[in-house]
Nucleic acid binder design. Structure first.
Lengths: 342, 342
DNA sequence: ATCTTTATTGGAAACGTTTCCTGAACCAAC
DNA sequence: GTTGGTTCAGGAAACGTTTCCAATAAAGAT
């Protein structure tokens, strides 16, 4: 690897000054005459000197890095979040280390447990589940943490800034389906343990839950959607609307229904959640509720970095973003159906 | 930030040994009796000691981190690559720092120029363009670099491992369109400077290029596809097939054609490139050529980390991955069209 | 019992910065 | 020309490891 041995000392020698002076010059601090400063900077330039960040960080007790732990960068709205975090961090001159927890609760806890080994100044985590251990580990941790809260209310005494993706998106979706006159509404998503709120919203919106209208798959994927479609189709009494736990599931439903010759929204209306880029390109276009992922990521990052820089302790923020409903073809009201059918 | 002041010295005191012994214990090196080792490890456990990586790295002259510079994590097959890199790096106990160059050539060069400031042991870069400066900067750099080569042949004297996403994917796509009997084939993509090979494959596959059948948009996006569709529709003599520079463009075409009442593949066949997850969920399903992104990313990462660990110098690898064609509905041959139309 | 050899151990230097603190140099004012 | 106050510069300590090297203890050979 043959690193350049250009250290601050070499620069000092070249410029004919002491190392302290070089340090002052490159960090442009006061207490140095413009003339020597220029001299030093010239030497820096000529030698191509770059301060060794390990040494700097060792001395300054920081790393200028934060970690971003997400379930899986390949999923739905995560790239958007990763992007948003990276951009916000860059503004503070911070780098982002990427960690995929792989939808594995154990590895989420591991991240927190080994957080010191991570070699970062702070952590942004988007947890999949919220076992009691999670809060304990967070509260025990000395590191600033921002949580991007996905669906579940966290105990208020959690020692972290929490930016919540709305917990109302399910309600919004359900209200929408009801408002367009659907009465037999189904739910499709992963087992409720993963993102409970999504399913609770379903229960809450209905007087009575028909168990046959609830389909729990393994995950929030296209496959889950396809299997859910098969399940609903085989019912004696099919639903007339489906609230899908996320867009991938919704698209899985859409596809399978198309293959089965079931019309959306005439036979069944569908609403997804996340409002990802795919919604606009499915057939029919998918109605969806946006949870404002990139805005949330930005705020979570800013809170974290402010906390780090100000060495703020306690006074944890709670920010809640409101969801937005985007009505597209998959949930047009029946009275307007003719506009859609060509 | 109130760091734990648990240093190796505290552990040494607790265990009643010297600091050198502690170091030997935690890095399980030889020359230490099992008994003392156990004693030290117990103290480590009890105090929750975690070695300060800045100090370690300063001493060892490494960072245990690599940077991944991609145009934009939100685009098409990039998340897959980022994921693959992270997983491969984890295997070597390395972390990945994420950088989005934002499709900006200048910022790509900046990454290379400031590579020392990046505080990493190596770099994986997926460049958008290949100005002469790029090679110069790479060759001048002392840091190990793996290039994920996207479409353009690099000079063979580039001092980096190069893993190439195939340059034959365009050829494959064109041959496919020709094989299903299409004669008036168009191209849609970004201006040719960005990924030249994609367009060159188009030129190479044809005896004569009709300029009206070539549409260059600003980028490889849905919008570019939509605009291309408008362009082709207004032609006196429409194409009967389109080779799209990537899937997003292809999907943009697909959508706009649907709105315009033009049938795919009956009126116009379409083939995209990347074979991303969307291909299976469009209507009609999109034929596409996969460039094997995650395999490429894995190999690029492994080469980089091997180079780092073995301190290998010179002997740069060139790996080429072959593309794979996935035929779906958007490019079914006309004789089989009836199978598709319901 | 004495002398080698081997297995463990601890002290101290080094990695490359930042920063405290002391010292020199300069200037103005008496 | 001495004094007092600024301003600027440099030496050295400290950050928390790893590792060389010397030292000690244990063990084996004579």
């Amino acid at each position: 690897m043959e690193k350049n041995k250009v250290t601050i000392e070499v620069v000092a020698a070249k410029a004919g000054v002491g190392i302290a002076t070089v340090s002052r010059a490159i960090n442009n601090m006061g207490g140095i005459s413009p003339k020597t400063k220029a001299k030093v900077l010239a030497a820096v330039e000529e030698l191509g000197f770059v301060p060794n960040s390990n040494a700097q960080n060792l001395k300054l007790r920081q790393t200028k890095q934060i970690a971003l732990a997400v379930p899986d960068i390949r999923n739905a709205f995560i790239p958007e979040i990763a992007y948003s975090v990276e951009q916000a961090a860059k503004y503070f001159d911070y780098r982002v280390v990427q960690i995929n927890t792989l939808g594995n609760v154990r590895s989420e806890l591991e991240v927190l447990r080994d957080i010191k080994k991570l070699h970062v100044d702070g952590l942004i985590i988007l947890p999949l589940a919220y076992p009691k251990t999670l809060k304990d580990l967070i509260n025990k941790s000395k590191l600033p943490i921002s949580i991007i809260n996905y669906g579940k209310k966290l105990d208020s005494d959690t020692k972290a800034d929490i930016v919540s993706l709305s917990t109302q998106e399910g309600k919004l979706a359900m209200e929408h389906l009801i408002s367009i006159g659907r009465t037999r509404i189904a739910y499709a998503g992963a087992q409720k343990e993963i993102i409970e709120e999504r399913f609770f919203a379903y229960e809450d919106a209905l007087d009575h839950v028909d168990p046959s209208l609830v389909y729990f798959g393994e995950d929030f994927s296209l496959q889950t959607g396809a299997r859910a479609a098969d399940h609903f189709v085989n019912l004696a009494h099919m639903p007339d609307a489906i609230y899908a736990g996320n867009d991938m599931v919704a698209i899985g439903l859409l596809n399978r229904f198309k293959e089965l010759g079931i019309r959306v929204p005439e036979d069944i209306a569908i609403v997804g959640i996340d409002n990802n880029i795919l919604c606009a390109i499915t057939t029919p276009k998918l109605s969806s509720v946006s949870i404002m992922g990139s805005e949330v990521a930005k705020v979570a990052t800013e809170l974290l970095l402010q906390r780090i820089q100000e060495q703020k302790i306690g006074l944890y923020e709670r920010v809640q973003f409101e969801p937005r409903l985007f009505v597209r073809e998959s949930s047009l009201a029946r009275t307007r159906t003719t506009q859609y059918i060509e």
